[in-house]
Amino acid sequence: MRHPGGPGVVEPVDAGLLRIVSGELAVSDPGLIGHDPRTVPVPRGEFPVTLSLLHTTHGAAVAAARVTFLDIPPREWDMALRADEDLRVLGEGQFYGVGVDTGTAAFMDATWAGIEGPLDDDLFMPLESRPSVELPGAEPEPNLIAFRAGRGDGSYPVWIGRTDDGQVGCVVVDFQLHRA
């Protein structure tokens, strides 16, 4: 893989199991919970979260984060849209994305996003030395898995990987570290 930081190697990293209790995934900056997250209807249960770390001569950064709902390769990809967003108004290379203002993004159950206030910065201190952190909820409550946003603050597309029959197989946040 070619990257401005020189040659790169991508390493998949297990970030834990995400617990969805409401049937709706929320993708948000955990420091801005409740500020209009990207949401996707998904199955209820516990699902693996995987980070793709891009290692270059300048260090490692999270290139993408994925939560997998079905162990079936996606056949098509849709951008996660809000009701008022229209793909037809976007130009080449444009996207609707999740806003990040704390350098961190997270996967969580939509009920967590709706009932919790912004999280204390001290909870994210571990992100200075590792790429992700889990904030557990007592079972059967939802948890939250937060991860460093590849380039820090900005807006990043959220993609829904669908199976042949249209089911959500995975959801991916692309931190735009390289050009496709």
Results as ranks from 00 to 15, higher is better:
4 P>C: 06
5 G>F: 08
6 G>S: 10
6 G>W: 08
7 P>G: 13
10 V>R: 10
11 E>A: 07
14 D>R: 13
27 V>L: 15
29 D>R: 11
30 P>I: 13
33 I>M: 11
35 H>W: 15
38 R>G: 04
38 R>A: 13
43 P>A: 14
45 G>V: 12
47 F>K: 05
47 F>A: 05
50 T>K: 11
50 T>Y: 01
51 L>Q: 06
53 L>Q: 09
54 L>D: 00
54 L>V: 07
55 H>V: 09
55 H>Q: 13
56 T>M: 05
58 H>P: 00
58 H>V: 10
59 G>L: 02
59 G>K: 03
64 A>I: 02
64 A>R: 07
67 V>T: 03
72 I>V: 10
74 P>D: 00
76 E>F: 06
77 W>S: 08
77 W>N: 00
78 D>S: 10
80 A>P: 04
83 A>G: 08
84 D>V: 10
86 D>S: 03
87 L>R: 09
88 R>S: 14
93 G>S: 09
93 G>R: 12
94 Q>H: 10
94 Q>S: 14
99 G>C: 06
99 G>Q: 14
100 V>Y: 02
100 V>Q: 02
103 G>P: 06
103 G>D: 04
103 G>K: 05
104 T>S: 01
110 A>K: 02
111 T>S: 13
111 T>V: 13
115 I>A: 08
120 D>S: 14
126 P>D: 12
131 P>Q: 15
131 P>H: 14
135 L>V: 14
135 L>C: 02
148 R>M: 01
149 A>K: 03
149 A>H: 04
150 G>W: 02
150 G>E: 01
151 R>F: 03
151 R>S: 11
154 G>L: 09
158 V>S: 04
163 T>N: 01
168 V>T: 11
170 C>T: 10
173 V>T: 15
174 D>M: 03
176 Q>V: 15
179 R>H: 15
180 A>M: 14
